[in-house]
Design a protein around this nucleic acid. Structure first.
Lengths: 200, 200
DNA sequence: CGGTACATGTACCGTGTGGTACATGCAGCC
DNA sequence: GGCTGCATGTACCACACGGTACATGTACCG
């Protein structure tokens, strides 16, 4: 902080804001593939073609970089959600099936793994991950409750049902990632649909 | 490996097997409180009153120590499960409620957090955690399926129902740990019971 | 051309790590 | 007593890490 002054973090939109965003994007890719646990500035820098000095330059510290990585990867999840909401004219069951199929797309596996890794580290108290805990449930609950209500459920039970559905999806996702048993997990999910939406 | 020879790992039951077990037990306690992520031999040693040299002495390497810690903490989970199965003469719903209440006992929160942290790191590929993935689902599925079958469900759907129940519990546990909203999560669980066992 | 500001690289530093070498204590046994 | 074997501690090593100091480019502006 004495002589050079290193621009550091500067909101968004500066001429090097692009570079920052680009670096963070590459970092999220790398982290989705290799995890957040043993991340080092040197390793990351080498992987995305930049010296570790540059990462410090643009992000100030490893922690701040991690914060942005976590935030960005969260944003990707949210993008997925909003993409799913824009699907009108299908029955709730089919919408849910569609959602489930998208979530279990093998191409997303790395992203899901990262999600649960960050979740775990946040639960353990890793500072740069902790803030996500606030939104981890509520962000998803909100649209799910809305969907339930528009489907005719009364608001009180709609909340419970939404919360239950979210938990079940996450639990079965954990199962799928651990066992890889797509068929078995899908069958369990179908059972849930039967209980949830009634047979048929 | 050249001169001293350091007894290292020796199955079980040697006269220092006790010391090993005692160290691993203390280590699990420490890890349940502080997590597995930033564990260092020095920090752990200081916490449980032993020099980091001793940990190497008894376990050979940090990785092997971690393996035993993970295994032991898994064993604790399994102990909980078997304690729960020895509860005859109660209806399935009430047994499930009992199980749920025990799992959500705040005293167990640290252990649960550790569970999900290890789960997350195993998904990410941390070598000493990966082996748990095999049993993470099947170990619980087996008794749950048995319970379903003795309750009269046909084996095929019993498997699906058990898998679904396990996932739901884990998903709601994740929710609870993240939000701390005991009331809301309990309500969602009650909703699940209603769907699962029928109203009543 | 000169100069100012920024992007990037290289070299370095202090620290904490896992692991090793070696010394010391302490028990049992001849 | 003296020896042998194990438990424990102290001191050390090499290494990788995050972070810093400083130099070098490189573009734009006068």
């Amino acid at each position: 902080m004495t002589s050079t002054g290193d621009s550091g973090s500067e909101g968004a939109g500066g001429k090097d804001g692009d570079r920052r965003a680009q670096l963070v994007d590459a970092a999220v890719d790398h982290v989705a593939a290799h995890g957040i646990g043993d991340l080092s500035l040197r390793g990351l820098g080498a992987a995305i073609g930049v010296s570790h000095r540059m990462l410090i330059h643009y992000f100030g510290s490893k922690e701040q970089l991690l914060v942005e990585i976590v935030r960005a990867s969260e944003q990707r999840q949210r993008d997925l959600l909003s993409r799913l909401r824009a699907e009108p004219g299908v029955s709730p069951v089919d919408a849910a099936r569609l959602l489930w199929r998208q979530l279990t797309d093998p191409q997303l596996a790395n992203q899901e793994r990262l999600f649960f890794e960050i979740y775990g580290q946040a639960l353990r108290g890793r500072p740069e991950a902790v803030p996500v805990l606030d939104n981890l449930v509520s962000d998803w609950l909100e649209p799910l409750v809305a969907a339930e209500v528009t489907a005719g459920t009364d608001p009180a039970t709609a909340h419970n049902r939404a919360r239950l559905g979210l938990a079940t999806v996450r639990g079965l996702l954990l199962d799928l990632l651990a066992t890889g048993d797509r068929e078995g997990v899908d069958a369990a999910m179908e059972e849930f649909f039967r209980l949830y939406y009634g047979p048929g």
